[in-house]
């Protein structure tokens, strides 16, 4: 999963930097908006990638869990009046518990059973949305904090600054995950389980517990992420769906098990969307770009396989 960066990865990184530089001069807003929104995608996609790498499950309900996290933060904020940024803290353990319960009730029965998983996680997505509908109705909810609209001006460009929090958060989560997986015993155990669960059992790893902990941790991060999401977006039960879709697409494009790739493709998707939007009249295409990108990547990969 975290194999040493190959030459191709370096090439992609360089290409990335070149594109960023070009955008910085030609269409700086695309760079800023794309980076910010792409980081949000990365934040949601990273846990999906981890769950896939270690449990072998593609979680189609991840956006819906984020929606749950956002509603949790919303409830906390409206009931106690605390700032949503502070609500990030209790949101983590709350979603961790949700993760444990979900795992024990449902996921553990389909680990490494590919066909059933799709039905299960898809069913979870629908169920969570309906549940949220019953509890909170379809009416959009908002919270207002002045810093949500904070902005800065550099030369002729005025842009929003709050969403850089997403960029920072994505960096933190990525680095945190990397350190966890490669430097802690629990993390190394998780990687072992991801590579060979049978072998992991045979070296004394409690594989079942590892699955549960990793799944729950990946859901737990959606608590704080939901709180961050809430600050900038009106939330309603269906708000998570499009993000589930993008998260899964990004993980698929990165190539399963490739965490740094998720960063690249997530930001890439954000930039591509922002780029298309910057052209008057092309805005509508921006939100199906991810679809086009997937098709391209799939064709490219199958072509490569045939060539080999």
């Amino acid at each position: 999963m975290l194999a040493k960066l190959r030459q191709r990865d370096y090439q992609i990184l360089i290409a990335f930097i070149i594109v960023a530089a070009i955008l910085a001069f030609w269409r700086p807003h695309v760079l800023i908006s794309g980076l910010q929104r792409g980081s949000l995608y990365v934040l949601i996609a990273l846990p999906v990638g981890i769950i896939y790498g270690i449990l072998g499950i593609l979680n189609l309900a991840h956006g819906e869990f984020m929606m749950l996290g956002a509603f949790f933060a919303f409830s906390l904020v409206t009931l106690t009046g605390i700032d949503p940024l502070i609500a990030m803290l209790p949101a983590f353990p709350a979603m961790f518990v949700v993760g444990i319960v979900t795992y024990r009730l449902t996921i553990k029965h389909v680990v490494r059973a590919p066909l059933n998983q799709f039905l299960l996680t898809f069913g979870l997505a629908v169920m969570l949305t309906e549940m949220a509908n019953l509890i909170w109705t379809t009416r959009p909810r908002i919270v207002w904090v002045p810093y949500a609209a904070s902005s800065a001006t550099i030369g002729p460009i005025t842009f929003g600054t709050f969403e850089f929090v997403y960029v920072a958060a994505a960096a933190i989560v990525l680095v945190g995950m990397f350190l966890f997986l490669t430097r802690t015993r629990a993390g190394l155990a998780a990687m072992a389980v991801g590579q060979n669960p049978r072998g992991a059992k045979l070296v004394g790893i409690d594989v079942e517990r590892t699955y549960m902990m990793i799944f729950s941790a990946c859901l737990a991060v959606l608590g704080p992420i939901g709180a961050l999401f809430l600050i900038r977006h009106a939330i309603f039960p269906g708000v998570g769906g499009p993000f589930s879709l993008r998260a899964v697409s990004i993980v698929a494009m990165a190539g399963f098990g490739n965490l740094p790739g998720i960063l690249v493709w997530g930001i890439g998707l954000g930039l591509a969307e922002a780029f298309v939007r910057s052209f008057r009249g092309w805005g509508g295409w921006a939100d199906i770009i991810f679809f086009g990108m997937i098709i391209l990547v799939v064709f490219y990969r199958s072509y490569q396989r045939r060539v080999r």
Binding site: G238, V239, G241, R277, R280, G284, D287
Partner: peptide, 20 residues
Amino acid sequence: GESFTSAVFGGGDFRAVLRH
């Protein structure tokens, strides 16, 4: 005029339209 994707359908990023 310019179109945008509503937040209802997963859009919600109006910065480009507002800039125009």
